[in-house]
Design a protein around this nucleic acid. Structure first.
Length: 132
DNA sequence: TTTCTTACA
DNA sequence: TGTAAGAA
């Protein structure tokens, strides 16, 4: 969960990226202009690319070699991004459901505490709550 | 030295 | 997309 943060860290100047991807600076700048990548900038206005940027450039390169145009690639990236957003949304929903279950169980404890003051949960409820 | 922007015999 | 020029 911390990996994404690292993968998005602005790390390499364009010179390194040209060696990593075998793309020319001209091509890389053009792809940025076309909205395919959005590298950060230093205070001196120099581009800094992240691991994700490099990966994306490699994807762009392979798509181009397969004959897909810029517009097509823009759509591909757009869709793959939507897939990621959908997955994140699914995770969010799961967590919200878990919290709702927790509130329900705590409410049960308050309304129907047992003699020993233990949380009235059985094994099934616990495993269901802590799953994931 | 490297990178940036802009322009095009 | 390549390349040149001038600035940072």
């Amino acid at each position: 969960m911390n990996d994404e943060l690292r993968r998005n860290m602005p790390l390499f100047p364009i010179g390194i990226v040209t060696k990593l991807t075998e793309l020319t600076p001209r091509q890389i700048r053009y792809y940025e202009q076309q909205g395919l990548i959005s590298p950060e900038r230093t205070k001196g206005n120099q581009r800094l690319f992240s691991f994700n940027d490099v990966d994306r450039l490699l994807q762009i390169k392979s798509y181009l070699e397969k004959g897909i145009n810029i517009a097509g690639i823009r759509e591909m990236l757009k869709q793959s991004q939507q897939v990621l957003e959908a997955k994140q949304e699914a995770e969010t929903v799961k967590k919200e459901l878990s919290e709702r279950d927790l509130r329900r169980m705590l409410k049960q404890q308050i309304i129907h505490p047992n003699k020993r003051g233990q949380i009235p949960l059985n094994h099934g409820e616990l495993s269901r709550f802590f799953r994931h």
